[in-house]
């Protein structure tokens, strides 16, 4: 496996960070470099870090129901600025919304209870696909 650089962020006002902190540790243990920029980020703030740090993927986590609004805006801004890296979402996301997020262009959606091995495998697969 090649070491990748992954940006993790929370967006909107949601402040539940247990999931994203745990995922950051999983990805680091798997050998990736993780940049976690904390809570309350806007799409513009996320994209700025994507560009400045040249990351290979972005993971955004939600627990409080704002995933559709925030992710739609993030993907629109990324397209407008020609920033193309895979975007992952994780958290409490209803299955209908998970499908809708993937239809918008999200690479994969992780819901609670996904074990570490599966998270790493799916993230690696999506990043490899993005390179091909």
């Amino acid at each position: 496996m090649t070491r990748k650089r992954i940006l993790l962020a929370k967006m909107g006002l949601d402040c539940h960070d247990t999931g994203i902190i745990t995922v950051a540790a999983m990805l680091r243990d798997a050998g990736h470099e993780v940049i976690y920029i904390g809570l309350h980020n806007s799409a513009e703030q996320v994209i700025k870090v994507v560009v400045e740090e040249g990351v290979d993927a972005v993971g955004i986590s939600f627990l409080s129901g704002q995933h559709m609004t925030q992710v739609r805006r993030l993907l629109e801004r990324m397209r407008a600025e020609h920033v193309a890296v895979p975007v992952f979402c994780g958290g409490v996301i209803p299955s209908d919304d998970a499908a809708a997020l993937q239809a918008l262009g999200v690479a994969d959606v992780f819901t609670p209870g996904t074990l570490t091995g599966e998270v790493i495998e799916r993230v690696d697969r999506a990043m490899a696909g993005a390179r091909a």
Binding site: G12, L13, D14, S64, Q66, M68, T69
Partner: peptide
């Protein structure tokens, strides 16, 4: 809701979608 939890009115730009 989260905007109120942080002391923002419903029409604050930070409240968008929340």
């Amino acid at each position: 809701d989260l905007p109120t939890s942080y002391g923002f009115d419903s029409d604050d730009p930070l409240a968008d979608g929340e």
